[in-house]
Amino acid sequence: MTSAVPLPENSSADEPLAPERALGASLSADDFKALFRGHPGGVAVITAEGPNGPVALTATSVSSVSAEPPLLIFSVSALSSATPAILGAETIVVHLLDSADLDVAKLASTSGIDRFADTERWSRLTTGEPVYHGVRAWVRCAIIERMNAGGSTVIAAHALQSDIARDVVPGESGDALVYHNRTWHRLGDHSRVE
């Protein structure tokens, strides 16, 4: 449970609070990366239509935020060639992958290639966004907020339309694709610990 921080006297909720103390030294980039290598993330591919054609990137930062309204968040690195097009888009498609989609995850995470060269692998929705065929699920979203966060941008998106090709039965493990310690993993009954 989160508790609210009381506002100082003569302050309003619209005024930013001044920091009361210095943050001190922070973790190095290497230490921070080492910390999160042990924290697995579900794998998704984000696509958008850019000024020079479709773009795609693989992300492990996608999370649901709210069911009503249906909101999700993810982050994109300033280092990705796809980031400018995604940041400039009004709508995007988030592909939620399982282990059968490993080829799509690898495709969208490989630098220096045309991720849309195989025209049999993808098409456009009637609204224009690029979508990969045969993935476990995808959701078309409207971007509603962008927040700079260090060398990344956190994006909040409102779900508009979805398709589930391979549903996960409640209580069953499915074949989720996760990224952990710089490698791809499949979750299934073999990985269940309870």
Rank of each mutant, 00 (worst) to 15 (best):
T60F: 03
G150C: 11
A29G: 09
L87K: 00
G53C: 04
W184H: 08
T153M: 10
S81D: 12
S12Q: 07
E90C: 00
G24H: 07
R136W: 10
H190I: 02
F32T: 03
A156R: 15
R182D: 13
I92S: 01
S26L: 13
A142W: 02
A67G: 10
T110K: 08
G188F: 07
I46P: 11
P6F: 11
P6C: 05
L57F: 01
R146H: 11
L72T: 01
L177N: 09
H133E: 11
A34S: 14
D31A: 15
M147V: 15
P130C: 07
T126Q: 10
D118S: 00
V178Q: 02
R136A: 15
S191Y: 03
R192H: 03
W122K: 09
T126H: 06
A85T: 02
R124M: 06
K33I: 01
L79N: 11
G53K: 01
L177I: 03
T2Y: 11
A78L: 06
A85K: 01
G174Q: 09
G88L: 02
S109V: 02
V135W: 04
N10M: 01
K106N: 13
A117T: 04
G53Y: 05
T83F: 03
A78H: 13
R140I: 06
H190W: 07
A117Q: 03
G151P: 12
D103V: 01
V131W: 09
R21D: 08
P6S: 12
R166F: 08
V104R: 02
A89P: 00
R124W: 08
G42L: 03
R115N: 08
A100H: 11
A48H: 05
S191E: 12
S77W: 00
R124A: 13
I92P: 06
T126C: 00
D114P: 02
W122S: 07
A89C: 00
A18W: 06
E20P: 02
L79T: 14
G112F: 10
H133L: 09
Q161W: 07
H158P: 00
G174L: 03
A4P: 09
